[in-house]
């Protein structure tokens, strides 16, 4: 796979196994700047494993993962500096305030002083959370915690944003707000977004799709490409066909 300028994330022939059980089998795709790519797959498809490999919580010698041209195995620090992550499970420190959590994250990314204050203010204001910066995270509801996590993931201005099922457990308005906000980011900030989900209604017509099932990519491309390839009327049907056929 050729690395081109607009490619923010390139996953090339990546495989991974837990012992003898294959979790990912020769997975390849790219995410370009400004693309919102939805990684769609049922539970156990390998989405979280793929994320763990991209952020180097796991390591696999099979294949390569490049972030802005930096191989995560060879130049992990450079690669990780380009990534913002929102994990499936909240990773905020509940006993700390919103501000303390964000300051901690900023310092881990080497952002300090005036710049850190400005970035925290900017991101929290975009999320409508600036007024609540002195509240402990424990006092926030699930939707607000997610907003803080997205603000945190964007603090160091990454070029790739990874979201691992960030709307799980949220009510409908909170989900809608996050889906809309992240899609807006792709347009306005030209961030490359890789969004793992199993919820069809989070997909916009302009999104790119990767359908992952049992560790292999069943289809990828624009929404219309996937519909055409499967002959389905909508993404729900296409997803059903692609994941059913393989069983």
């Amino acid at each position: 796979m050729t690395f081109v300028d607009s490619t923010a994330l390139a996953v090339n022939d990546v495989s991974y196994a837990y012992g003898k059980k294959t979790a990912l089998d020769r997975v390849s795709f790219v995410v370009r700047r400004g693309d919102c790519t939805i990684l769609l797959g049922p539970n156990g498809a390998g989405k979280s494993t793929l994320f763990s490999l991209i952020i180097r919580l796991y390591d696999s010698p099979a294949g390569s993962i490049l972030i802005n041209g930096n191989d995560v195995r060879k130049k992990p620090s450079r690669a990780l500096a380009e990534i913002g992550v929102v994990f499936q499970q909240s990773t905020l420190d509940l006993d700390l305030t919103v501000l303390q959590n964000l300051r901690y994250h900023a310092s881990l990314h080497g952002v300090g002083g005036r710049l850190a204050r400005a970035r925290i203010r900017e991101e929290l204001q975009r999320q409508g959370m600036y007024e609540r910066r002195h509240e402990r995270v424990r006092q926030l509801n699930g939707g607000h915690r997610r907003r803080v996590e997205i603000a945190r993931a964007l603090l160091h201005q990454p070029s790739v944003l990874l979201l691992d099922e960030p709307t799980v457990g949220l009510d409908v308005p909170s989900r809608g707000a996050i889906v809309e906000y992240v899609h807006g980011l792709c347009m306005s900030e030209k961030i490359a977004v890789l969004w793992a989900s199993h919820l069809i209604d989070e997909i916009y017509p302009s999104d790119r799709l990767i359908i992952l099932h049992q560790g292999t990519i069943r289809a990828q491309g624009g929404v219309s490409d996937v519909l055409q390839a499967t002959g389905a009327a909508d993404i729900g049907d296409a997803f059903h066909i692609l994941t059913r056929e393989a069983m």
Partner: peptide
């Protein structure tokens, strides 16, 4: 278990 160790381990430092 809570996941906050992940935020430390994905910091771009050794």
């Amino acid at each position: 278990e809570m996941g906050s160790m992940k935020t430390l381990l994905i910091t771009p430092l050794p």
